[in-house]
Design a protein around this nucleic acid. Structure first.
Lengths: 203, 203, 203, 203
DNA sequence: CATGAATGAGACTTCATTCAT
DNA sequence: GATGAATGAAGTCTCATTCAT
């Protein structure tokens, strides 16, 4: 009913526009309620166009997830000096993740929703394994360097990576539910805690 | 077509039967695909009966979540000697959580699905806050005792609770994705790590 | 919107009701326009119920076709004395087919529509071969008997069957387009013509 | 994505190009599946252009049908010597129709699809009557000449025409379903049969 | 108490058609 | 003239929910 002007955009612009609307809708309403109709409405576009560019709803969700992972990873990678002493890198990374919660909250929420819900018809998950692996491996490499340099305890690097990620995710989730959390302070304390657990000497 | 005897069970038995079927269905197929029809089928009961006992699908999911939380909490509480020295309690709790993954995996998976997806029509979450609070508070109390007794560092107890929970959840999630993980060993190492971070002296 | 009383019928009654509505709708509006909505409306039933009983639209059409073939075949078979002299049987069969046009016109029209349009996704026909074969074979048997008894010319029986069927179908199609046709007279003349072509002596 | 040169053709060339693509698509995929997108793709032309030249999809189908009828009729007419003795003409026509199946099979299939499916919104057929009439009348004229010359029996010429057409169509349909049919032999036998039915003396 | 037939809302998807470029 | 991006109207199908039995 809403009279909408028929604008012509390049394919890239449209795709971006729709992907952003998908992230916003999924983050706000959750995976279930993020129907194509609502996504299209949010993008200011007809339902048909969404199908035209992305095919199935599942395809759209999958593409949204990978695009979002890329965005987030770039945001993180750009800001870290990976050549610094490892404990310093870890502390910086935690602070950075905390800030991520402010700048990319929607993206993170949407990503969690999609990875938690996107499945093949038979019920098996379609995501989350392969992509997390890459993250874990990068962290492992960092931890190994710390061990080689004598600044980290000799614990299983994979386990450290998983724990680190879990602790950071918990921080972000907690901040999500308690918006008045002082994230910078939280990050500092969490760094103390984790480095106390994995570093040698102090942190 | 399967000829099913119309058995007459007590209300409690019926409810339990349906709740268990809900947990199993949600854990296997995910929140979306867990339709009332499939749940009813799994419970060996008619769709109508499910509605009769639990009202809306949302209501059913909410009840399933709280019942599951109760089950899990009881399983944990029953096995822990909370009067022991705090670091010892923590180490035992981690091991216990690891074992939980074997005994209550479906329950945990279903719980994650429901808390992640159940929402009010306006999109806001309907769960996970109030119920986690209780868990956090119990852990905080434990950590405070540790601090009072001089066995734990003087970090924000709430933060310690959140981090502890996040690290344990990460362990369980990782084990879910990598079924060949040696969970007892993982639990030991995680206890070393966390106690290194929060305990005084060692762990 | 139409307030419809919710009546409970046996599965058989519903299926029959829906199949009849399908025949009527397809015959009247053609295959394309026979949407599930229109079929359901004609049956006085909700769209959902049609899907419930017959699955896909394609499945419904296929079932309708086979059910209709059965109906028509029974109507024909019941009325013919196959032990009479072959030319006599043929003449009677033509008359019978002509009368079929009055009693089962909708069924015949719908059948033609469905066999002409029902296809697999790849474009290949899904019907019409196997079922016609059975008809052809029955006619062939009749013609062979005529040849054995010396009342029919020695032409390829399969070809006679195909031609006979084509001529009869043409009669029915013509009568469909020209409703004022005197079908009994047509049938008589057609019998003269065909028996002149295939019988020995006369007909 | 296929880089297509934007060629500038005369209107007639464009129309022919599109009509041929329509015939091919309808013959291959059936009336329903012959979407404008697929037709345009096959013609190597944009969807917009198809609409531009032919208006509605229905219009396109109608034009395709009449153009195809014309093509087929010309192919037949060109090859028949209508001044020969009538039985001879008939035998030749049957052979010619059989050959048509090889040279114009797509056209014939498409024609059948369109006439069988094209309808006004109210469900009534939009074709097949008027156009067949012309064919019938031409055949009637031939049969009348035969009767005047004493070579054909005194049966209703219209009925003979309808039967003749039905028998020939059956031959073509059968050959379509059974590609290994020896059509020349079939045509010979069919001529024997039909002339036996309608000719005086023999054929 | 229990069933499952039946409804109706709404989701996804396809496609003829329009129109800015 | 020609394109193909964009729309919007169906159509098919699924499912939570109701209700006659």
């Amino acid at each position: 009913m809403t009279e909408r002007p028929r604008r012509r955009l390049s394919e890239d612009q449209r795709r971006t526009q729709i992907l952003e609307a998908t992230v916003a809708t999924v983050a706000t309403l959750g995976y279930d309620q993020a129907s194509l109709a609502r996504i299209a409405e949010r993008a200011g576009v007809s339902k048909g166009l969404v199908s035209h560019y992305f095919g199935t709803r599942e395809d759209l969700m999958a593409e949204t997830a990978t695009a979002t992972v890329r965005t987030v990873r770039e945001a993180i990678g750009a800001a870290l000096d990976l050549t610094a002493p490892v404990p310093q890198v870890i502390r910086a990374a935690i602070h950075h993740a905390a800030r991520l919660h402010l700048t990319h909250r929607e993206a993170l929420t949407a990503l969690a929703q999609i990875t938690g819900n996107l499945r093949s018809p038979d019920g098996t998950r379609r995501l989350s394994l392969a992509d997390y692996e890459e993250t874990y491996r990068a962290q492992e490499a960092l931890f190994r360097r710390g061990q080689a340099e004598g600044s980290l305890r000799d614990l299983d690097p994979r386990l450290m990576a998983v724990t680190y990620q879990g602790a950071v995710d918990a921080m972000l989730g907690y901040a999500e539910a308690h918006p008045d959390t002082d994230l910078d302070h939280y990050a500092d304390t969490l760094a103390d805690l984790l480095l106390g657990g994995i570093a040698i000497g102090s942190g």
